[in-house]
């Protein structure tokens, strides 16, 4: 038999998943666009709905903005298998801590917990089959004056706090450029926008990213296909419903 070596050396010669095209690439779902920015009512966390495997659109109904607890959100970019498992682990860890210790986990500990999971995922990241670069938005629950904060990570677990916005995934460069421009020269700046303007902006950002990135999609407001958009503030997390997003979209188009 040809192909002595380890399992990964053998895979290209003896593919186990012929479903994924002639290249027999493994079913790695990646490329996406998720982002978070401050608006007047809190932090908006939004994402497109497309999951791809190479050139194949795997799903256009993927939920990439995941609620970890009542005041924590994780936006996932990268390999969903690893990202969903991280989110599930964090959901259980945060709730277990809150219930068993009778106090919520601090924001710093939550941020660190995600960093540690990314670090533990290092072998899969290096092999190229488990890369995850998430965004985390949270709020220090114990501090009555605290405002929501955005963090972003590199795939090895390094943590960075975003002052006004963060974006991750294959369409992130476009989004970052636009948000940078708007934060400096926009009138109003995204951080001063009311919720309706902020959700309309989120859709326009995704549509722009999708223009230059085939892996970003599943969002077509004119066809009532809206992005996943969640608002985080002191009251907790609110998922914006399609009816509300449609109203915001139409208001923005009319103005």
């Amino acid at each position: 038999m040809k192909g002595d070596g380890d399992f990964f050396a053998l895979l290209p010669e003896r593919p186990v998943l012929p479903l994924f095209g002639p290249s027999h690439s493994p079913p790695v779902l990646e490329a996406t666009t998720v982002f978070a920015f401050h608006c007047a009512e809190g932090v908006i966390v939004a994402g497109d709905r497309r999951a791809t495997s190479g050139t194949v659109v795997f799903s256009d109904k993927t939920e990439k903005i995941l609620e970890l607890d009542a005041h924590s959100l994780m936006a996932i970019a990268g390999v969903p298998a690893a990202a969903f498992e991280m989110a599930r682990t964090l959901q259980t860890a945060f709730e277990f801590y809150r219930r068993s210790q009778l106090q919520p986990m601090s924001l710093a500990a939550k941020v660190r917990a995600l960093s540690k999971l990314l670090r533990d995922n290092l072998p899969a990241t290096l092999q190229g089959v488990g890369t995850v670069a998430p965004i985390f938005a949270g709020l220090e629950v114990a501090d009555a004056q605290a405002k929501p904060v955005i963090f972003y990570y590199d795939p090895l677990g390094a943590t960075f706090e975003a002052t006004t916005f963060a974006a991750s995934g294959s369409g992130a460069l476009t989004i970052r450029s636009i948000l940078h421009f708007l934060e400096n020269w926009g009138r109003p700046r995204p951080q001063d926008m009311p919720l309706d303007q902020a959700t309309a902006l989120a859709h326009r950002l995704l549509l722009t990213a999708a223009e230059f990135d085939t892996a970003t999609g599943g969002v077509r407001p004119e066809k009532r296909l809206f992005a996943t958009i969640k608002l985080l503030n002191r009251e907790g997390i609110r998922t914006l419903q399609p009816e509300e997003l449609e109203r915001h979209w139409q208001q923005a188009a009319a103005s």
């Binding site: 599930r88 682990t89 259980t92 709730e95 277990f96 219930r99 068993s100």
Partner: peptide
């Protein structure tokens, strides 16, 4: 309480 919380979260996870 701890035994119940641990068992419930383990099962849930």
């Amino acid at each position: 309480r701890q035994a119940a919380i641990e068992a419930a979260h383990l099962e849930g996870f």
